[in-house]
Each structure stands twice: as structure tokens, then as C-alpha cells.
């Protein structure tokens, strides 16, 4: 409702940790549940998330992450079974919370009844490998170095809603590339209409500031 999500991540390993960092950069509140004490300590040193040390499949541990207030629970450990258990527990404990499950194998439609979203990180990894092998054709998510190319939706009451680019001052390190239709490049008189989306290039350090201008 305020553009800030409360997100619980089960598993602070390779995937969970990076997800926590990106979400924190975008200004969300993140809680990570991690079983391994060393991993948990490293994560807590990063200062991007509140860290709960324990096994997320135990209801007593999962509940400590504050499920009733969470918008999304993302189960991102390397084991499908663990992840599914976390999502099923979440459905039971907090039915309104969205669930995201990470799978080990190419997912079919088998999970759809039990979770809201399924992700399979190896597919993205394979794309990156292909991009490196065949550099002439790049999948969009890997064209840039650290730069993010985002498609941003202008919320109804966002600070920039109905303003022209001339009126708005964006943080240094961000650039509005094109308007919603994607036919013309954005110029000073481009107006940011609420309800429409724009292609924006952003350096990671200013992502949350840019998002704030687009959120209500």
C-alpha cells in the first residue's frame, strides 16, 4: 500500500542473499531466515535484513519472521522440498501472504496450485552463459554491467505523476529512456502519466530514490 513491501526470505544462501541485497537497495523491509550460523552471521554483517537464525520449515521459527505482516514470503533455499514446505506453512499461517518458491528442476505446472510464483534460477544462469558464448544476441537482463534497465509504472499519486521531465529532477545516475509506447525517446516535455510505464536506466545506488519518485 505504500510501495514498501515487507518480504520474508527463507534461505540466505547464494540466491537468497543476493535477492535480499537487491530488495534492500530498492527500499523494502527484508527478513531472512537462515539455518547455518556462519551464513547468518555474514548476512547480519551486511546490514540489509533482519536475520532469524533457524530452520524455516519449523513453524516456531517461521512465525518469528512476522508472517502476518509480510506481503511476500520467498522460499529460496536450494531444496525444492524445503521451499515447498515453507510456502505451504505460510499459506496455513498467513493465507493473505504471497508465496514465491524456488525449484531445483525445470518446473511444470505442478506447483501452481500451492504457490503464487515459481522461479527457476538455473534458467537465468543458462541465459547468461549463452550470452557469453554468443555475444551478438543478448537477452535483455544481461546487456548491462551493473546498470538496471527497469520498466517503471507511475503510481496514481506518485510525486512525478502528471509532471513533465523538465519539472522533475531525477537523481544523478538515472535516465528516462523512452515513454510508454517505446516509439520515441523521452525529452524534456515528456509527461509522466499515472498508470503508464516508462523505460528507465538506473545505477544501483539510486534505485530506491527513483522508485520513490514513481511510487504513490
Amino acid at each position: 500500500m505504500d510501495g514498501n513491501f515487507r518480504i520474508v526470505i527463507a534461505g540466505g544462501g547464494r540466491v537468497g542473499k543476493r535477492v535480499a541485497h537487491i530488495l534492500d537497495d530498492r527500499g523494502h523491509d527484508v527478513t531472512v531466515i537462515e539455518r547455518d550460523p556462519e551464513q547468518a552471521a555474514t548476512l547480519s554483517g551486511d546490514y540489509v535484513a533482519t536475520v532469524i537464525e533457524g530452520d524455516a520449515t519449523r513453524p516456531g521459527v517461521l512465525e518469528q519472521a512476522g508472517l502476518e505482516r509480510a506481503d511476500v514470503v520467498a522460499a529460496l533455499t536450494s531444496q525444492s522440498g524445503t521451499n515447498l514446505a515453507v510456502c505451504l506453512l505460510t499459506r496455513e499461517l498467513a493465507p493473505d501472504t504471497q508465496t514465491v518458491v524456488r525449484t531445483e528442476d525445470e518446473p511444470g505446472t505442478e506447483f501452481d496450485r500451492f504457490v503464487d510464483e515459481v522461479i527457476f534460477p538455473e534458467r537465468a544462469g543458462a541465459r547468461a552463459a549463452v550470452n557469453a558464448i554468443e555475444p551478438d544476441v543478448n537477452t535483455l537482463e544481461d546487456v548491462t554491467g551493473t546498470l538496471d534497465i527497469l520498466e517503471l509504472h507511475v503510481a496514481e499519486h506518485a510525486p512525478v505523476a502528471d509532471r513533465s521531465l523538465e519539472e522533475v529532477s531525477l537523481p544523478r545516475g538515472s535516465l528516462i529512456v523512452s515513454d510508454a509506447a517505446g516509439d520515441t525517446l523521452a525529452g524534456p516535455d515528456t509527461v509522466l502519466h499515472p498508470g503508464e510505464s516508462y523505460l528507465v536506466a538506473v545505477e544501483p545506488s539510486v534505485v530506491d530514490e527513483v522508485l520513490n519518485l514513481f511510487r504513490g
Binding site: 500500500m1 510501495g3 496514481e156 506518485a158 514513481f214
Partner: peptide, 14 residues
């Protein structure tokens, strides 16, 4: 309720 939901989809991202 519109006031409270309209901003949650500003997420975008590829």
C-alpha cells in the same frame, strides 16, 4: 480502498 492499493504496482523491473 483504491488509495491503499494503487501504488503497489510501481515495481516494474525486468
Amino acid at each position: 480502498p483504491a488509495e491503499s492499493t494503487d501504488s503497489s504496482n510501481a515495481e516494474g523491473g525486468v
